[in-house]
Design a protein around this nucleic acid. Structure first.
Lengths: 169, 169
DNA sequence: CCGAACTTTCAGGAAACTTCGAAACTCGAT
DNA sequence: ATCGAGTTTCGAAGTTTCCTGAAAGTTCGG
């Protein structure tokens, strides 16, 4: 296999890893994802460790996290003990997974904080408290609306939704 | 002013800060943002420092970053040397700012990496290289499309866009 | 052009997060 | 039961990111 190609491949993996950290995803996780994305077949933990020069513990933890995100699947080969891992390659599905995860980790907790603070000042009808509630309610309503949009987008089919939205805008 | 209310207010600020770190935004920045969001008037650097118990350097840096994001504005009071800061309170504008920033920091660099890798394997027509290119192109096309959608959404008016999208879905 | 008021920068320490490696655990075959 | 291939957990070490406090820079009135 061409040396150049192997280099580009490796560069892709490391750069994707670097990007990951910009995103708040840890570097190893992003690298494993990139590796599996461009792998021609499923890989075992040991292969991942070897390609990326990482420890077993690290490989194991991050593979599990990727599985939790729904971005990677465990593959069992009949008659073999060892587990193999394969990345989801359908871009739209990846997008849905990431959206779902972000919703879970970002918007839902925010929603909860907002609602709790609104509830806890409900009794207080001083002008300050009213204004505070007003602000927080505006935020909360917006987050809900955005959430609903995300949910519907994620539930729909790629080919239909995006072009249609583009048309509306 | 009611003690309870002050407590909720403080809790909101710290919790919003904690959320921020989940999002890859640093805690102080998120806290300053929350503080200014629920402040009844613009605040000076010293007031921010005092409320949040942070150093001058920290306050200054994070205020600057918030200004770069477009989430906070410098206010000058005529006849006063000191600068005051006020948060953007329109939720839709906040959303647009955050979207713009995420695009700049997340999708644009990703796009560049993908394009570079595609270009660098263009000459290679081995099956592996072709497949690699195919994967990366799918990703790249998708990211572009998503970007276009984001841009248009951000350029539009809140009241019109979201309800309209909801209808289409 | 000086000094006071205010803002910005930066080196180094503190805190948070990531990674390693080894020990503990699981599970199926014998 | 025991072995061994394979997986998971966890404390310590390493790395990155954040925060502080002090020093340097800027700007305005006089």
């Amino acid at each position: 296999m061409s040396q150049d190609f192997q280099n580009v491949r490796r560069r892709f993996i490391t750069q994707w890893g670097a990007l990951g950290s910009q995103w708040g995803i840890n570097r190893t996780m992003a690298m494993i994802h990139a590796l599996l994305l461009v792998a021609e077949r499923e890989l075992s933990t040991d292969e991942v460790m070897e390609e990326l020069n990482i420890s077993r513990g690290n490989a194991n933890t991050n593979l599990r996290d990727l599985i939790d995100w729904g971005l990677v699947q465990r593959m069992v080969r009949p008659g073999e003990r060892r587990e193999y891992f394969a990345a989801e390659k359908d871009v739209w599905k990846i997008f849905c997974m990431v959206a779902r995860e972000r919703k879970r980790r970002e918007t839902e907790p925010a929603q909860k904080v907002l609602e709790a603070c609104i509830r806890d000042t409900e009794m207080d009808d001083s002008p300050q408290a009213r204004e505070f509630r007003r602000e927080l309610t505006a935020l909360s309503d917006f987050v809900s609306l955005a959430n609903t949009v995300m949910e519907k987008v994620a539930a729909a089919e790629q080919s239909r939704v995006l072009p249609r939205i583009l048309k509306v805008l």
